[in-house]
Nucleic acid binder design. Structure first.
Lengths: 351, 351
DNA sequence: GTGAAAGCGCTAACAC
DNA sequence: GTGTTAGCGCTTTCAC
C-alpha cells in the first residue's frame, strides 16, 4: 500500500504537509492541498490506522464483552451501542465470554493489549464477588500513570469501586414479578432459576416467598442455563416431580419458551392452570401464545446510556467520580398471567 | 503502560531478547527467560498489539459487514463466525451497513484503512450489479503488490470476479416455497416482496406464477423492508385492496410476524383461509402460532464455512482461484401451510 | 545466546 | 506555509 511518504513524494511536499492536509490540522495553502489530494487519489492512498493509532495512542475502537452472543437480550443492547459508536466515529468489537470467568479475564487482557479506547463489560461475576473482582479490574485497567482505561460495567454496580455502572433494579423487578403472580392468586409458584450470577432474581424469589408466607419447595425450583432447551428440560423435571403449582416465575423470557413447550406437551393450559411470567421482555414475549407477561428491562436504553457514558469518559478523560446510572424495570402484563389483559399491537413498530 | 523496553531494563537484557521470550521465536537461555518473565510479571507488562501489528503487518482482527444488525438471521451467522474467529485467535469487529450502499462503501474503506486481516461481506448490492461492484471491490481490495486483502462474500456469487463466495441457492428456495403453496392448493398467492437487493426471491415469485399459469396481480404484491412493522403494514395494504388470496409468500420470516398480526386483526385464519410460508427459517418460525412453514437457510453453516474459508486465505495466502461454496436450502413444512404437519420439538435443542 | 540498531507509517514539535 | 526529524513500541537482521 501507498504510504504517506509516497503521497508526499508524488505531490512534492513533506510528509508533515500530507499529514496536515489529511487531518485538517494546520492551515495549508489551497494549491498545496489540491496537489496532495490529487496524489492521494492517484495512488489510492488510505491512511494506515494502525500506525496512526500507535502514534496517537488512540485506536478509535471500543470493545464490548457480553456473556452470551446468542440471546435476544444482548442483540438489543449491542444494536444500541453500535448506533452510538457509529455516531462517535468509533468501531465496535464484540467479545463473548460464554459465561466463563476465565474466558472473561482473558478477553479483558486481550482487549487491553489491543489498546481499545474503552470497554463495555457485562460481567459474569455475581453480586457477592463484586468487591474482589473490582480490585482485580482496578489492577488490570490501571495504567502506570494512575489513569484507568475507561470501563463501563453493565448490569452490576461497580461504582463504589471506581467504575461507571449502568444498572437495572433487577431485584425489585423480581419482587414485582412475584407480587404480580401472587396478586393473580398464585400460591404455589415454581421457579426456573437463572444461572448463579443472576443472583438478584434468585433472591427476589426467596424473599417473596417469605414475604407472602408461602413455603419453599425445592421440587419447584430448577436451575437453568438461559436457553430454550434448558427451560424445556427444567420444566419437564418440575412436572415429573408431580408437585402441583399454579404459577411460574421464569428467570428469563427465553426459558419460558421451553417451559411453554413442556407444559403444552403435558396438557397444561396457560394461564388457566398455571400463570407464567418471564423476565427481560424481549420481543418474543409478544409472539408467544399466550403472549408472555414479563418484567421489562430497558435494553436499548441501557446500551445507549452505557455507550454514551463511555465516550464521555474517553473523550473528556476527566477524573470525576464514578457514575451509577440506575434504570427502572416495568411489569408488562400479557395473557400468560391475565386472560383479560389488553394487548396493544404497538410492539410491532419497534422491531 | 510498561513497554518492552522497561521489561528489558528490569531484566537486564535487550529488547530483542524480551521479544524472543514473548514470542518463543529464537531459543533463549532458561535463566534469562525466567528473569524476563519475572520482569513482565512485576511490571504488569502487556504487549502493545498496535505496535506489534504495525511491525508485523498483521492485526489478528477480522471485520464482518452485515446489512442489518437487528435481524435474527445475522445473529446466527455472526455467532458462528465468532466461534471460528475465537478458535483461530482472531477478534471480530462488526459493522452495520444498514442496507445503504454508500455506508457499505465507507465501511469497507474504513476497514481497509484499519488494516483488518480479512473481511466477511454481506453486501447490499443486488445480483445485477455484481459485475460492476466486483470491479469496484477489486480496485479497493488490491494492495499495490498485486495481492488482495482476503475478502469472502456472503449470499452473493462474486467468484467469477475473483472473490470467494459462500452462497445459498435462494432462487431455488423461492421456487420451492411457491411450489409448496401451489401443491397445497393455493391459486392466488400474495407476496411480501423483500427489498430490491434480494432479487432472487422476487424472480422466484414471478417465474413461479408464470410456470403455474397464475396471473400476476400487483395488488397482491407489496414491497417491504424486512421488519415486523413493514410486514404488518404491507399485509394491511393487501387486505385493504380487497383482492382475495389463499396463499402468502413472505419474503422472510420476520415479515410474516407482522403479516400474522394483520391477518389476525382481519379475522383471517391460517392455514384455513390463507396458507403462509416464510423464508430463512429463523427460530421464530417454531414459536409463532400457527408455526410457520419456511425455507431453511443454513445460517450457522454459512457463517462457519465463510469464516473458515477466510482464515484459510489469510493464513495460507496462496493465489488459488476463487472458491464458490454453494449451500442448499430446505423446505420446512409446519402448520401455517399444512394443518396436519407433524412438528417435532427438536428445534428447541438448537438454541 | 544476546545485543545494537533500523524501520514499520504516522504525528508533532520545532526550525526556517 | 512548509520541511526536518524524533519517536510511538515493537520485530528482526546482523554482529558478536
Amino acid at each position: 500500500m501507498a504510504t504517506i511518504r509516497d503521497v508526499a513524494e508524488a505531490a512534492h511536499v513533506s510528509t508533515a504537509t500530507v499529514s496536515n492536509v489529511l487531518n485538517n490540522k494546520k492551515k495549508v495553502n489551497p494549491e498545496t492541498r489540491e496537489r496532495v489530494l490529487a496524489a492521494v487519489d492517484a495512488l489510492g492512498f488510505r491512511i494506515n490506522a494502525v500506525a496512526k493509532s500507535l502514534k496517537n495512542r488512540k485506536t478509535n475502537r471500543i470493545a464490548v464483552v457480553v456473556t452470551d452472543l446468542a440471546g435476544q437480550f444482548f442483540q438489543s443492547v449491542i444494536r444500541a451501542v453500535n448506533a452510538v459508536a457509529d455516531d462517535n466515529g468509533y468501531s465496535l468489537s464484540i467479545f463473548n465470554s460464554d459465561r466463563s470467568v476465565t474466558k472473561e479475564k482473558n478477553l479483558l487482557r486481550e482487549i487491553l493489549s489491543a489498546q481499545y479506547d474503552g470497554v463495555l463489560l457485562d460481567t459474569v461475576i455475581s453480586t457477592a464477588q463484586i468487591p474482589e473482582y473490582a480490585e482485580y479490574l482496578r489492577r488490570l485497567f490501571l495504567n502506570d500513570d494512575e489513569k484507568f482505561v475507561p470501563l463501563t460495567v453493565l448490569e452490576r454496580d461497580f461504582s463504589p469501586y471506581g467504575f461507571d455502572s449502568v444498572c437495572v433494579n433487577i431485584y425489585e423487578g423480581g419482587l414485582n414479578a412475584m407480587q404480580h403472580l401472587y396478586d393473580q392468586g398464585c400460591r404455589r409458584i415454581a421457579f426456573l432459576a437463572p444461572p448463579p450470577s443472576f443472583d438478584e432474581r434468585i433472591r427476589a424469589y426467596y424473599d417473596s416467598l417469605d414475604r407472602f408466607g408461602l413455603k419453599y419447595d425445592p421440587k419447584l425450583e430448577e436451575s437453568t442455563l438461559f436457553s430454550y432447551f434448558s427451560g424445556y428440560t427444567a420444566m419437564k423435571k418440575i412436572l415429573d416431580s408431580g408437585v402441583p403449582f399454579d404459577g411460574l416465575f421464569s428467570g428469563n423470557d427465553e426459558l419460558a419458551v421451553g417451559a411453554y413447550q413442556a407444559m403444552q406437551e403435558a396438557g397444561i393450559s396457560i394461564p388457566q392452570d398455571v400463570r407464567v411470567i418471564g423476565f427481560d421482555n424481549i420481543f418474543l414475549a409478544n409472539i408467544l401464545s399466550p403472549s408472555l407477561s414479563s418484567i421489562n428491562v430497558p435494553k436499548s436504553t441501557m446500551g445507549r446510556l452505557a455507550a454514551e457514558n463511555l465516550f464521555r469518559r474517553i473523550e473528556e478523560g476527566h477524573q470525576e467520580l464514578p457514575v451509577k446510572i440506575q434504570l427502572p424495570t416495568q411489569l408488562v402484563i400479557r395473557t400468560s398471567t391475565d386472560p383479560y389483559a389488553v394487548i396493544s399491537n404497538d410492539w410491532i413498530r419497534h422491531v
